[in-house]
């Protein structure tokens, strides 16, 4: 517990804004690498994959904050909004590279969303994240009250769809997307168990 306490007291003293700066800088840096020919012979595909994977990693990190506190005592709740909003920004970058640089034609973008299941689930995941990004400000949290919590449970289906999207686009038997999908399912089932445990306690206090 001593280690967790030390981490907590350190994290309390750290500002959260560098998360935004670091993530935005990474996205811009990678784009510049692609622009200057340093991402190999097919930079569009590389950007698409790297943005997509990092977005998924950030979303998983956001989902892991609560279980981390429950099981280890390490409290990073302060950083969760920054992690979540940054994740949305990277998802947006991933979507933009796909739509504007990869597919390029508006008709083809729509056709892919409608016709290709792995694109459909990826796009749905993106849509679910939009209201979350828009309400990730203190004003919305106050205004929505308990409904904010309910609304932000949309991260659960968004993550499942994101994991499915990753698994669906790979060829052959690959471990990486399965590990992500497994991790997401594990984190979500932890949530469900935590929720189930919390509810009766609350009922007793009322």
């Amino acid at each position: 517990m001593a280690l967790a306490d030390r981490i907590n007291s350190l994290s309390r003293r750290l500002p959260t804004w560098p998360v935004y700066i670091l993530v935005a800088a990474w996205v811009a840096w990678l784009f510049w690498l692609g622009l200057s020919g340093q991402l190999g012979p097919e930079p569009i595909n590389t950007l698409e994959r790297k943005y997509g994977l990092f977005a998924l990693q950030l979303l998983v990190a956001g989902l892991a904050v609560t279980p981390l506190r429950t099981w280890t005592g390490v409290n990073l709740i302060r950083f969760r909004r920054a992690i979540g909003v940054s994740a949305f920004f990277v998802v947006l970058a991933h979507f933009s590279v796909w739509a504007l640089l990869d597919v390029q034609r508006l008709g083809a973008i729509w056709a892919d969303i409608v016709k290709r299941p792995y694109v459909t689930v990826g796009f749905l995941s993106f849509l679910l994240l939009i209201p979350l990004a828009m309400t990730s400000n203190t004003w919305s949290v106050r205004r929505l009250g308990p409904r904010w919590r309910q609304l932000h449970k949309l991260t659960y289906p968004a993550l499942l769809l994101g994991g499915l999207h990753f698994w669906w686009l790979t060829k052959g038997w690959q471990w990486e997307p399965l590990l992500y999908l497994g991790g997401i399912v594990a984190l979500l089932s932890l949530r469900i168990r935590l929720g189930a445990r919390r509810r009766p306690t609350r009922a007793r206090t009322v």
Partner: peptide, 20 residues
């Protein structure tokens, strides 16, 4: 292909704004 269209392709080596 069931997961993507085969109507167009991208020539490798055209950079970040390589047209299909």
């Amino acid at each position: 292909h069931p997961r993507w269209s085969q109507a167009t392709e991208r020539r490798i080596g055209g950079g970040l704004f390589s047209p299909r």
